[in-house]
């Protein structure tokens, strides 16, 4: 290290580095000065807005109604008694639940096929992670191109495969549009599960399997006795991270269904967005987002507490 060397030379010459008053002060408070920019930014753009929104949720802040009168819990009432709000929370829960479950199983299966080395593994790896680097908006767009009638080739392919005319409105007909939203999410985020679970799988010492094989344990038993317990902390981590992102689901809905038909595909985020930015009931939307925040915090406490107990790494 060059500067160190310079300073030691200075020292040897009997000239200890002298610091100005400011530099001394800065050196003493060094650790706090380092965290200051990040902390101040988060305070300004996350904590302050949250407090501000808490205020907004108790007053009238509506572009259609003048003035900012204190209205108590009225904004919260509006959300709680709105059937669309309750539907959107319910939809968010099961849509993210199903998506994450499929991603988990599929990701685990693919990870298991990739544990051993084989020719072409590196290239396949690079291809499989590609969806992680694509904007969800584009993912929604890509699946729209595939599914939307009459342009998308999906109905044609199904017609050929099944031998009978298939004319499904993938973005408009009731069970199918959920399927479309789930498949877009699964396409994008299965690699997430896969990458984390693969890291977990490769960390399991291979001699455990060798020992098991010597003891005459078959592959299925080895999976239950060795793989699963060793992988459990990673599984919990992957599920936690993924679930906390899945409940924010917004972008693909915005592009693929626009919440429609009617309000059938309103997720919590989409509902709050429309209340705030197309109906301009801003105080109702902030009240709703606080309720959603509390709901998320409960999920976080449940999952992250567990996670910290198991402590992967």
């Amino acid at each position: 290290m060059q500067p160190t060397a310079t300073i030691s030379r200075l020292k040897a010459a009997g000239a200890p580095p002298r610091l100005s008053g400011f530099a001394q002060w800065a050196d003493r408070h060094f650790k706090w000065l380092l965290v200051a920019p990040a902390v101040l930014l988060i305070l300004a753009l996350s904590v302050y807005p949250l407090l501000f929104s808490l205020v907004v949720s108790f007053i009238n802040y509506d572009f259609q109604v003048p003035g900012h009168a204190f209205v108590g819990l009225k904004n919260f009432e509006r959300v709680v008694f709105d059937p669309v709000a309750r539907w959107s929370l319910w939809l968010t829960a099961w849509l993210s639940g199903i998506s994450v479950a499929i991603e988990f199983v599929l990701g685990l299966l693919v990870a298991l096929t990739m544990v051993r080395s084989f020719p072409g593994r590196g290239v396949i790896m690079s291809i499989l992670i590609v969806p992680l680097f694509i904007s969800p908006v584009i993912v929604g767009q890509a699946w729209t191109l595939l599914l939307q009638r009459p342009f998308g080739p999906t109905n044609y392919i199904l017609t050929q495969l099944l031998g009978q005319e298939v004319t499904i409105g993938w973005m408009t007909e009731s069970p199918w549009l959920y399927f479309s939203l789930i498949i877009a999410d699964v396409w994008q985020w299965t690699p997430f599960m896969f990458v984390i679970l693969l890291a977990g799988l490769t960390a399991i010492p291979p001699n455990l399997y060798e020992a098991a094989e010597l003891d005459g344990v078959n592959a299925w038993q080895a999976f239950w006795a060795i793989t699963l317990p060793h992988l459990a902390p990673m599984m919990l981590l992957a599920l936690t991270f993924r679930l906390l992102d899945a409940i924010r689901m917004f972008d693909t809905i915005f592009i693929m269904t626009g919440g429609g038909p009617g309000t059938r595909t309103y997720t919590a985020s989409y509902y709050l967005y429309t209340v705030g930015f197309t109906q301009f009931h801003l105080s109702q939307a902030t009240a709703g987002s606080w309720l959603f925040l509390i709901f998320t915090a409960l999920v976080v406490m449940l999952l992250v507490r567990r996670l910290l107990k198991t402590e992967p790494v």
Binding site: L50, F52, I247, A268, Y273, L282, T286, S289, W290, T296
Partner: peptide
């Protein structure tokens, strides 16, 4: 770390107003 798990909808409404 907790900032990472905040739902963006909770932040973006007040940030928009600010």
């Amino acid at each position: 770390l907790s900032q990472r798990f905040l739902p963006p909808i909770g932040i973006v409404l007040p940030v928009f107003l600010i």
